[in-house]
Computed example of a mutant assay.
Amino acid sequence: MHTGSCLCGAIEFEVSGELNAPDGCHCDACRKSTGHFLVSTDVKKDDLKISGEENISWFQSSEKVRRGFCLMCGSTLFFDAIFKDWTGVAMGAFDKPTNTKMDKHIFTAEKGDYYDIADGLPQNEH
C-alpha cells in the first residue's frame, strides 16, 4: 500500500497494490495547472481510497477530464479521466518511498521552452 496527502493534510489517500511507472505530461493544461509539468501514475479507481474528499475542488478541464486540487492549500493531486477506470495521482503527493521510476514523457510537443528533457526516457509528442 502507498499513502499520500496534500501539503496541508486536509486530503489523504491510500493506493492498494504496487504503483504503475509514472509519466511526465508536458501538455499546456498540465503545465498551467501545476506550474511545471505533471508526473503522475495511473491508479485503478477501485484501488484509490480518499479521505477528506470534501476538501477537493474539481476543475473540469475538458469533456473527458477533471482535475482535483486541495481547497485549502492548492495542491495538485488528481487527474480524473471521467470515462476510464483509472485516476492519475500526482507523484509529488505520495509519501516516500514510492519504489517507482518514470518510464516516459508525453505531450512533449507542448513542453515549455525554458527546459530540456535530457534523462534519456522515451518522449512522445502526443
Results as ranks from 00 to 15, higher is better:
6 C>G: 02
50 I>R: 04
65 V>A: 15
98 T>N: 01
117 I>W: 08
62 S>L: 12
120 G>W: 07
113 D>E: 15
36 H>V: 06
30 C>N: 00
118 A>D: 15
75 S>L: 07
115 Y>K: 07
61 S>A: 11
51 S>M: 05
50 I>G: 08
118 A>F: 07
67 R>M: 03
96 K>H: 02
97 P>T: 03
67 R>P: 12
115 Y>H: 09
107 F>A: 08
44 K>R: 14
19 L>S: 03
79 F>R: 08
100 T>P: 04
41 T>P: 02
95 D>W: 05
63 E>R: 10
13 F>A: 05
95 D>K: 13
80 D>P: 08
48 L>E: 12
30 C>G: 00
71 L>C: 10
61 S>F: 10
57 S>E: 15
76 T>M: 11
124 N>D: 14
12 E>I: 01
47 D>S: 15
72 M>Q: 14
43 V>G: 00
104 K>M: 14
45 K>Y: 08
80 D>C: 06
36 H>K: 05
9 G>L: 10
74 G>Q: 10
65 V>L: 14
111 K>D: 02
67 R>N: 05
4 G>F: 01
10 A>G: 05
80 D>S: 05
47 D>W: 01
59 F>E: 10
59 F>W: 13
7 L>G: 00
43 V>K: 00
37 F>Y: 15
109 A>T: 04
14 E>R: 12
56 I>F: 06
19 L>D: 07
69 F>Y: 14
48 L>N: 12
88 G>K: 00
93 A>D: 02
91 M>H: 01
42 D>H: 11
13 F>T: 05
6 C>Y: 01
54 E>A: 13
18 E>D: 14
102 M>Q: 13
33 S>V: 09
115 Y>R: 06
95 D>L: 09
72 M>W: 04
96 K>N: 03
42 D>K: 13
113 D>K: 11
32 K>Y: 07
